[in-house]
Design a protein around this nucleic acid. Sequence first.
DNA 1: TTGAAAGCGCTAACAA
DNA 2: TTGTTAGCGCTTTCAA
Lengths: 339, 339
Amino acid sequence: MNSKVTIREVAALAGVSVKTVSRVLNKEPNVRPIMQDKVNSAVAQLNFKPNPQARGLRGNKTFILTLLYSNPNPDYILEIQNGAMAQGNAEGYNLQIFPCDHKDENIIETIRTFLDASPQDGVILTLPLSDNHQLIELLENKDIPYTRISPLHSEHNSPFVGSDDQKAAYDMTKYLISLGHTDIGFIKGHPDHSDTDKRYAGYKQALKEYNIYLNEQLIKQGLFTFESGEDCARQLLAQEHKPSAIFASNDCMAAGVLKVSKQLNLAVPADLTIAGYDDTSVSQQVWPAITTVKQPIHLLGQIATQKLICKIKQNTWDEIKSIFECELVIRDSSSICKN
Amino acid sequence: MNSKVTIREVAALAGVSVKTVSRVLNKEPNVRPIMQDKVNSAVAQLNFKPNPQARGLRGNKTFILTLLYSNPNPDYILEIQNGAMAQGNAEGYNLQIFPCDHKDENIIETIRTFLDASPQDGVILTLPLSDNHQLIELLENKDIPYTRISPLHSEHNSPFVGSDDQKAAYDMTKYLISLGHTDIGFIKGHPDHSDTDKRYAGYKQALKEYNIYLNEQLIKQGLFTFESGEDCARQLLAQEHKPSAIFASNDCMAAGVLKVSKQLNLAVPADLTIAGYDDTSVSQQVWPAITTVKQPIHLLGQIATQKLICKIKQNTWDEIKSIFECELVIRDSSSICKN
DNA sequence: TTGAAAGCGCTAACAA
DNA sequence: TTGTTAGCGCTTTCAA
């Protein structure tokens, strides 16, 4: 399927041995500049592209990275994917995907089969797979390099990236407090996602800092789905002591809150301030648009990939972890508390 | 990175030649069942997985399919991707992705470079790339098998899949007419997408069938974006002769229409019926939820992949094209015309 | 600094 | 029906 030019033809045209061509291609030392020029011009003239399969076969490399995901949020995944692709491509790697279902009991076996059948140089894990211990053990046992995006803990000295969810949730809560809200409902995310705890921690931290009593009645357990957002909102708004603001752990759930508010004839933001998390398209496309937190998702995908490639090549020293700041995106669903 | 067991070890354990192992692995004829059993048990015992790279190098195959996309709709892409993955995986192929930007002037060069550097067995094209003639020529010249999803025309006898957009838009328009609407605004999609024309044709077809005059004032050119939906809605609703229903060519734009209606204090669906297209998450997460058209996206990805693999293997005869029906998803944004 | 030859794991061609 | 041998395109010995 690829161009038919081989290293032998390049060598012939350049008047050198194949090994010299190989050396130039791989930027190995100990080649005289004159030779390099000869080779480079032959390469250019023939439009030669080394065959990655052959390279891989010999060197046990594939130049393929795999993104493993099991996440219902397409905006998130696609942005991670694009970030990973951008970085990988820049460094000569291609990106393979493997969608899986983290609720599947046999997920580990499925992934094991996949890994056995599809050689790759490394794997990128997204939530909630980043926190799957069995999966991590599998990768460790198989000695496959991997990076994780937004895991809860560091493990086995493997590189990871994340965004400072706790700080972002803290900032958002502080922002809501600055608007005069003190009865701030909070909808937690899915218990399987480590993000859930970090966001909740940020919320608590802000309340504590401002000496606001943590009212358990205002905390509801969501599942990151629209429906769970609705349910929690109904519970929160049915209580005697209603919150004047609700901070949902993601945009989907915030959209659910918005729907319920409208059904209950609560004006947003006049009667109820709503905040979400993730800055997904839905947060912009509802009305009023939802105030939210924007994670640097593209960057997470990019840096995760960079770290992975570093680990694969083992040739440059790299920080094991990188945590990035999020930013608040203030939209129309939040305003000063009228009480 | 893969298991270290080679075909030679299997041959040794089974007491046969490597070629016989190879024959069994590839299900070639002319091997006695006794031999097959020997080989199979040795394979199982050693947990042998043939190395795809080596296989590929010899047979000039990679068992990798590439999904080329340049589409701002993450819900759509991810669903295509999952469908393609499901099918590919079932047939022993892996899926690689290559996101690109169809507005980039150098897109063809970018793709050419990618194709040269990354061997693959075939390529899947999504809109709007499915209609890019230069790209198709490139693939034809390089003799790389490809399938296209939802292209406007058939070309070079290459397989494609699509959904019957015209019929779906026709059905939706008919449904709106059945509710008593006659002044039905229509917001077209991006002119670069072939879907745009098909959906518009369906709209016109229904009007014609019901002898409803096609009022050019009610037709607006959108761009598939939320903002363009807003703009078109503002134009439509500022006119003296307002539509009682608006059919937007996708959900994003329909969400824009919904926003504008609310800003203009028009109740939906009481004062204005809204319909979208695509059944993306936003259509479910706004309130009221938007009546829309659901394409069998997963299936499109799946069948496109199936056809591609057929073409690669050239061993089974397969219909060059498959067109699937869409279904209407009636939600809360549509109701009987009160006039 | 350069090159010849061996071989990565597999399959195609040919021979037995 | 089965096995032997060559070689896919590249990189890695190891020798010059």
